[in-house]
Each structure stands twice: as structure tokens, then as C-alpha cells.
Nucleic acid binder design. Structure first.
Lengths: 342, 342
DNA sequence: CTCGGATCTGTGAACGTGCACAGATCCGTA
DNA sequence: TACGGATCTGTGCACGTTCACAGATCCGAG
């Protein structure tokens, strides 16, 4: 009958079908599937042929159920809408993590948490046993996702290091030290009045970059030279620069919290007639696509985003294998890229 | 023994545990879990309490196995590295799709296919029964992922419409019509020598945008005024503009294949001393963050990226419910955003 | 020829859930 | 009281895989 036919057509081949086709038992098929020893050459070739013939593909749900693991790890991006779209690093982090996981034959599954509803569903999903571990990008302090992951004891590694994650594994850059180093470099060009456009102070990265700046200027610190803006954005860079320039017309050096901020600041400086780097030197942070687009090209701190993703993935894989969890968190070097803007 | 204790501590609560705790059977627990009728008020409250007490969370692998569905849909991004990082629309597509799926209580899982190895693993993953349907972003002609999805008969919807997908569902914009409309608008400002920097002609979107341009200029078409470049990028915009300007110094209007291309072209034009829009009018495509960043801000075609994601998600959900698959593909409107650059 | 180990194979149980079915209880009506 | 229907509950099987175990065969050494 046609309904039976339809059902047969739909029905996916199982190990049983392969066994029947090859004239052996399920156990033997399972052994060749998992590359185990103790299977005769005859059986092996018969089974390989049968697999090809019936078009067998293992059912991952059944496999996960019995093995209690899924060979998939989640990459959780917990960002409000706008940031996910604009963050210059996130794409590279994804690619780096994907590359490392791919080499270990793990499937990476990127999970987005945008609304509170997403967070709930995601927490349930993670508890469902379809994910062996997670990489968490840009968690915030007090983040409900962070709590959910802690409750289940999933292997997890954070990219970036919010202050409340305790001894969890993390891979991060040292924002403070990097900010200090590039500010020192800017100071070394002989500037006397170096200011900062400090963005995103509600995030650890933003606060740390400001702290590094303060470290570097040391005794010469002048609060007037720091302008605070909410976001790592081009337009906040413009706004910040206008205010700072009005307050301190004698400024001759700028450390911007991000490349986008620097680009905005540069445009304002140039339309006010300041020459870069002659009148004002400016440096940024990220080494994103903005940096090369500036004229002159921007000197900046290179964020090893691809490597961050890769290192985070490797950390999760180590935890999965039960090797040391290297609790205290790893920090990656951020080379300074010196171009023409300072 | 401590090992037993450890095992107990790890072991996740199951329906059986809940049933034991509540003093009922597995069947009754299952009924309340799935909101079925015919369960007494007493049993219901006892079970709710038991679920909370033992911290029960359903195992999704077991559920998928018996139900033959997973309540998860995959969003496949098949892009070489650089494009994923730079594509201005992809983030918005993700967010739009995620929002729609979230409302239907589906988990979205973004899957990246970068290397050929990724493609293989992804195809196996998709066959594994852990994914009920897929949204495919930026597939290419002859794409192996496209073939893999066709082989399994997973519900699938494409964002964008490669020519070889036959009657599969898709959600796309009309690149040709949009290009025609914005070119007409540019022509209507009184330009006599309107050229195009045509990027990515190996992609459908690139080829269609050129076709729309040709449609619009009609009889006035002059092949010299079209410069072809490989990528939708800022630097290809610069390169293309330099070549075009050298060949046709009298050009007074430019349609660039993308905003990034337009931005590159604008910088070259301005450093050659051409005033925008007085000497040369320029328009782009995408309405990405580049557009507002230009000075003057760029007139461009708005891509409804969020809506594309949402519509694709809804299409997959409809297929899952068995409703009409609306085979021929849907097209979304692209409003023209007129700013100062033309 | 017998024994023991290595090699190969099949069978049953388990993973955690949903569903069909059968059985039990309750209540209103004839 | 007896009956039929509605309501509620428990049990066994199925989903597709892996694994432990037991049984079968082979081969070389004593």
C-alpha cells in the first residue's frame, strides 16, 4: 500500500538494517562503526558495503542518550542586539573556536541569548544533555546565563573575565596592561597633554582600559582630560571628542577606548583643522577593520580575537578530557600595532 | 562509599525519580509534563512539588529519540572566514531569525561551515536527528551543503536565492529591481555620465545588481563606465574608483555595489578633489553602518536584514507544521534611503 | 590430543522519554 | 442494583544506539 511505502521511504536506516543487509549482528556493526578491534575482514567489508547501500547515518539522539555525551559544544553569545551586530571581535572569536573544535571533531553550535525568554530556553536546552560544554562570550556581572551554567556543572570557559566567576576557566586579554602600554608609547612621542575618551565603563573591559590609562599617566593625571561616553561606537567617539576639545583645546594626544571611538574622534579633530599626527596623536584599541580605514591609519592594540576563540575551545576540550582545568584563567598577549596616527 | 555518593551526586534526576518522589507512576508524570488531560488535582500538585524538589529537567536526547524531533532548528552560515566577519547583514539576520524561533519556543543553533571538513561534519550532524529544519544563509551555486540538505529531506529555507535550488523555499530581496530603482533615482538628479563599481559578480547578488543598473541606464549604457571588482569591500571600492576615474574622468554619478564599496570610492573621489554630491553623486547598497559613517551620509538601498531572518524562520516553521511550502520564494521590499551623497 | 589464549560474534540490557493499552474508580441514570 | 460513560492511573513497549557478557571458533604449544 502506498502509505506503507511512504513510511518505508521516509524511515531512516538503522544499525539493525545494516546488520540484516550485511548478514551479521548489531554488535558487529557497532564495532566497525566505532573502530573497535576484533572484527574479521569479511565482516568489515560486508558491513561497509551495507552501510553505503542502505545509506545509514547514525542517529545522534540515540547515541547521546546511551553515551551521555553529544560531541557538540555550545558557544553562547549573550549580547543585546546592537552589540552582536557591531562588535568587531565576535566574528573572529567564532571562527577561531570553530576551527579548534572542528579539528577535534566537535560540532560547534552558536546559541544566542537576546531576551530574558531566550535565557530561560537556553538554560533548559543546556540542561538537556545535547551539549557537552560551553564557551561563554561577553558575560556580564550577575548574568543569569552565568548562574545557569554554574548550576548544571557543565564544563565551561569564559572569553573575557567578569569579576564574579570565581575559579571558572577563562581566556582573556589584559585590558589594563595593554592600555598602559599603548598610553606609554603615546607619551613617548613627546606629548604633554594626553587625554582619553573612555567608553563602556559599565563593562570590565572599559573600566580596565581607563585604569591602564591612569596607571600610565601617573602623577601627570588630570581628570579634565578624561571624557566618558557610554558605548564603543563611532558616534560616541565624535561626541566625546567634541566635548573634550571644547574643555581642553590644548590636548595633543588621545587614547580612545576602541577603534570605532578613535575613528569618530579623528573625524572631529580633522574637521576642526587639527593635523594627525602632527598636532594631535591618537591611538585606539581592537585593531578592527576601522583601524586601516582611518587616514592616517590608526595605531592600536591588536586583540587576538581568533586566538581567544581557539584558546577557549581548547580549554573546554581539556576539561572534557578531565585534564587540569587551569582554574585561574589564561591571558593572551596583545601586540601593539604602530601605524601613522601617532 | 564515596564513589557511590559521587555517582549519585552527578546523576541527573529522571521521570522515574519524580514519580517515586510524588508517589505516582511515570505515565502520570509524563502527562503533567506534556499538559495532557485526565490527571487529578492531587497528583498534579504532588508532581509539581516533586519536580521542584529533585530538580528535574527533561533529557532532550531521550525526548528527541522517541518523538523524532528536537525542537531545535539550525541556521547554517556557509561563508569563508573573512565574509562572516565583515558581512554587515549577517548579524541582523541572526537576530531576526532567533526572535521568530524564540517566540515559537524553538532553539536556534547557528552552525558555521568554514572548511570542507566542516561541511562534512555538518552534513553528518544535520542527519543525526538533532535538528528539525534549517535556515541556510548565503549558499553558493553548487554548494555541497545545499546538496547535503537536499539529500536528507529536511525542511529548509534559503536566505537569498541561488539559481540552482529549484523549488525550495527562500526569502530574498530583489537585487535587480532595487538596483534599477536606485539607479533611476540617481539619474533623476540630472547626471549625464553615471557609472557603476560592480563587485562580487560571482554571487547572484552581485550579478543581479549589475543587471538592474543596466536596466536603468538602458540606451545610454556605456561599458566603459562599469568597473568590475572581486569583493564587496572598502579597499576594492578604492581600487575600482581609481581605475574608473582614470578611464572616465567625466563621470558624474556612481552606483556602488555595496556601502563599503561606496565608502572606498567616496574617499578616493574626495582626495581627488571632487565634491560630493555637487561634482559626483554616489549611491550604495545595504544601508549598513558604513552609510551613516560617510560624509556626506550615503544614499543607499535598505536591506531588511532582520525581517529576512524572521521571514526565513517563519517559513521553516510553516514547513514543520506541514502547511503550504510556498515554494516559489518570497521577496521582501527594499526601501531606498535618500541622504546627502546624491 | 588437549588445553589455554586470542580472536571473533551474537544477545540482552540499558540510556530516559512518550504513548497505547488495559485496568480501576467514580458518578449519574435507568 | 446494574450499567455505561467519563475520569484517572499504571505497565510494557518502542525509539536507536553502546556495552558487557557469554559463547563459538581458531591456532599453536606442550
Amino acid at each position: 500500500m502506498s502509505s506503507v511505502e511512504a513510511r518505508n521511504r521516509r524511515r531512516r536506516a538503522t544499525v539493525k538494517d545494516v546488520a540484516l543487509e550485511a548478514g551479521v549482528s548489531r554488535g558487529t556493526v557497532s564495532r566497525v562503526l566505532n573502530g573497535q578491534p576484533y572484527v574479521s575482514e569479511d565482516a568489515r567489508t560486508a558491513i561497509d558495503a551495507a552501510i553505503a547501500k542502505v545509506g545509514f547515518i547514525p542517529n545522534r539522539a540515540a547515541r547521546s542518550l546511551v553515551l551521555q555525551r553529544s560531541q557538540a559544544i555550545g558557544l553562547i553569545v549573550h549580547e543585546p542586539h546592537s552589540l552582536f551586530v557591531e562588535d568587531p571581535n565576535i566574528g573572529s572569536i567564532l571562527m577561531g573556536a570553530n576551527a579548534a573544535l572542528s579539528e577535534a571533531d566537535y560540532q560547534m553550535s552558536t546559541l544566542i541569548a537576546d531576551t530574558p525568554r531566550d535565557v530561560d530556553r537556553l538554560a533548559r536546552y543546556l540542561s538537556g544533555g545535547l551539549i557537552d560544554g560551553v564557551i561563554i562570550v561577553s558575560a556580564r556581572v550577575g548574568d543569569p546565563i552565568t548562574e545557569a551554567v554554574a548550576r548544571l556543572d557543565l564544563p565551561a570557559t569564559f572569553v573575557g573575565r567578569p569579576r564574579d566567576i570565581g575559579s571558572a576557566a577563562s581566556v582573556a586579554i589584559d585590558n589594563r596592561d595593554s592600555a598602559r602600554r599603548i598610553t606609554n608609547r603615546l607619551l613617548a612621542t613627546g606629548r604633554r597633554r594626553v587625554g582619553m575618551i573612555a567608553a563602556a565603563l559599565d563593562r570590565d573591559s572599559g573600566a580596565d582600559r581607563l585604569a591602564g590609562f591612569v596607571d600610565a599617566v601617573g602623577g601627570r593625571f588630570d581628570a579634565e582630560l578624561v571624557e566618558r561616553v557610554p558605548l564603543y561606537s563611532y558616534s560616541d567617539g565624535q561626541r566625546g571628542m567634541r566635548t573634550l576639545l571644547a574643555r581642553c583645546p590644548d590636548v595633543d594626544g588621545i587614547f580612545a577606548s576602541s577603534d570605532a571611538v578613535a575613528a569618530g574622534a579623528m573625524d572631529v579633530l580633522q574637521s576642526e583643522g587639527r593635523r594627525i599626527p602632527d598636532d594631535v596623536g591618537i591611538v585606539g584599541f581592537d585593531d578592527s577593520s576601522w583601524a586601516m580605514r582611518c587616514d592616517p591609519p590608526l595605531s592600536t592594540v591588536h586583540q587576538p580575537a581568533t586566538e581567544l576563540g581557539r584558546a577557549a575551545a581548547e580549554s573546554v576540550l581539556r576539561q572534557l578530557r578531565g585534564v587540569s582545568d587551569e582554574s585561574e584563567g589564561r591571558q593572551l598577549e596583545c601586540p601593539i600595532v604602530w601605524r601613522g596616527s601617532a
